[in-house]
Computed example of a mutant assay.
Amino acid sequence: MSVRSRATRERKARIARIARHLSREAGSVRCLDVVEIAVGCGMKTSPAEVKTVLARLRLHR
């Protein structure tokens, strides 16, 4: 697996972890909340990437 693929997979896993945590704590997940937390943690992500991960977790349509 290439370095880029591994980095992308790890970034998406971290986004999923944040989203699952918000879902447990608040009961709902907003894309912009996840983006804000991820950027605050130093991750470089976009709303489109977060929406893709949330859709895979069935937390966003």
Score class of each variant (00 low, 15 high):
1 M>K: 10
1 M>S: 15
1 M>H: 09
2 S>T: 14
2 S>V: 10
2 S>K: 12
3 V>F: 12
3 V>E: 14
4 R>H: 15
4 R>K: 13
5 S>L: 08
5 S>F: 09
5 S>D: 08
5 S>V: 06
6 R>A: 15
7 A>P: 02
8 T>S: 11
8 T>N: 08
9 R>C: 03
9 R>Y: 05
10 E>I: 14
11 R>A: 09
11 R>K: 05
12 K>V: 12
13 A>W: 07
14 R>G: 04
14 R>K: 07
14 R>P: 02
14 R>I: 05
14 R>L: 04
15 I>W: 15
15 I>G: 06
15 I>E: 11
15 I>K: 10
15 I>F: 13
16 A>T: 06
16 A>F: 12
17 R>D: 15
17 R>K: 13
17 R>F: 13
17 R>G: 14
17 R>C: 13
17 R>L: 14
18 I>M: 06
18 I>D: 04
18 I>K: 01
19 A>F: 05
19 A>Q: 03
19 A>S: 04
20 R>G: 04
21 H>D: 11
22 L>G: 04
22 L>C: 02
22 L>F: 12
22 L>T: 05
22 L>A: 10
22 L>N: 04
23 S>P: 00
23 S>E: 03
23 S>R: 07
24 R>I: 11
25 E>T: 06
25 E>W: 00
25 E>K: 05
25 E>A: 11
26 A>I: 08
26 A>R: 07
26 A>V: 10
26 A>C: 10
26 A>Y: 07
27 G>K: 09
28 S>Q: 13
28 S>K: 13
28 S>H: 15
29 V>H: 01
29 V>M: 04
29 V>G: 00
29 V>Y: 03
29 V>C: 02
29 V>R: 03
30 R>F: 06
30 R>W: 06
30 R>D: 08
31 C>F: 12
31 C>S: 15
31 C>G: 13
31 C>N: 14
31 C>W: 09
32 L>F: 03
33 D>L: 03
33 D>V: 01
35 V>K: 08
36 E>G: 08
36 E>C: 05
37 I>T: 00
37 I>Y: 03
37 I>G: 00
37 I>L: 06
37 I>R: 00
38 A>V: 00
38 A>F: 00
38 A>T: 01
39 V>L: 00
40 G>R: 01
40 G>W: 02
40 G>V: 03
41 C>H: 07
41 C>D: 11
42 G>H: 01
42 G>R: 05
42 G>Y: 02
43 M>T: 11
43 M>I: 11
44 K>E: 07
44 K>H: 07
44 K>T: 15
44 K>W: 07
44 K>P: 05
44 K>I: 05
45 T>E: 05
45 T>K: 03
45 T>C: 11
46 S>I: 07
46 S>Y: 14
46 S>F: 11
47 P>G: 09
48 A>I: 13
48 A>N: 14
48 A>T: 09
49 E>K: 09
49 E>W: 02
50 V>S: 01
50 V>F: 04
50 V>K: 01
51 K>S: 14
52 T>M: 11
52 T>I: 10
52 T>D: 12
53 V>S: 09
53 V>T: 11
54 L>S: 02
54 L>I: 05
54 L>V: 02
55 A>H: 13
55 A>D: 12
55 A>N: 15
56 R>A: 13
56 R>I: 10
57 L>P: 01
57 L>N: 02
57 L>R: 04
57 L>E: 08
58 R>H: 05
58 R>D: 08
58 R>C: 09
59 L>I: 01
60 H>W: 14
60 H>V: 12
